[in-house]
Amino acid sequence: MTSVERVEAAMQLQKADRVPVWIRIIGGLGRVTGVKYGELLQNGELAAKCALETQELFGDDFLYAFLDTLVESDGFGQRTIFLENEAGYADKENFMIQSPDDYSRLQLFDVATAKRCKDLIKMAEIMVSERSKDVPVIAIVQEPLVTLGNMRGIEKLLVDCLRYPEAVRQGVDIVTDLIIDLSHALIGAGVKYMLLCHDYGNRRMLSEELFLKIEKDGLARWHKAVKATGTRIVIHSCGPTPYVDATFTIGEFDCFQLCYLPTGCTNWSEFKNKYGNRICIMGHLVPSEAARMTPKELKRECKNNIEELGPGGGYILAPGCEFPGNASMLNYKALVDSAEEYGRYR
């Protein structure tokens, strides 16, 4: 089977020849290819080249079109500060949203001309044209609150959600328009799977009630727009106690990438029994732990993951979030090898 067939089988909740596997690295791309991380983040062509070389080296089942979580906010005009070998950050001395009134003043922009969106789309286009016949391309957009947090500061945004929910919702509406445009551009480039970074939909950030009050309408609109293109949606929620059931009230999704269990499940087998006939499950290695393990320990952990979630198909072995860039490259290999060694379906 090709990776395209293997991943699609898992998304259809079927067994493939083996469990598909995704390393999910962006920070590590520079180290693998000898390029400065800060440089590749600002150059879509270079990022695509590094991602293609890395996928070829390790042989996992996805190509990942992602630069960082600041692509959308940068397009709105929020200054990004880039570092040489680390991820960049939004300039906190000059947040664009200075008061609740500023949420509604955000100006939608053209993703085809905004520098970083253009880089991301370029990255996807190159990966699609080079290898999408065999390996599917998965691209990422940020849920609106992530982008608003980059432009307001997370602490102020969280308080605004309580104090000025209507103002925040106006911001969510505008950012939703943007991620619909960006998703359409990425899908137009040939991306097969859209991954939504869903960092606020868990108990670490907002109550379930407040999360739905602020983001449900926007996410439902995005869901409808992406689904209308026939593209599959992967929800990424790496925080503790993700709101899986609440997310389903937004719409039906194809896959959930997780690190931690939601409420109502005490172990992963239980999670599989509860949701396995509804969604493909991706995860659940905890990245910081996976980075510290020896390759042997990591393989043992992968074996456990596969035994818990692999039976019957509908499972993709992966970390619950980015595999840390400073991890041993032997661990990247151990992850991919584990799918081959322990994930074969008979």
Binding site: L158, V159, C161, L162, R163
Partner: peptide
């Protein structure tokens, strides 16, 4: 988990 970060931050403010 009956209050969350927004409530904690607002209370502190």
């Amino acid at each position: 988990y009956r209050y969350y970060l927004p409530e904690l931050l607002l209370c502190a403010e």
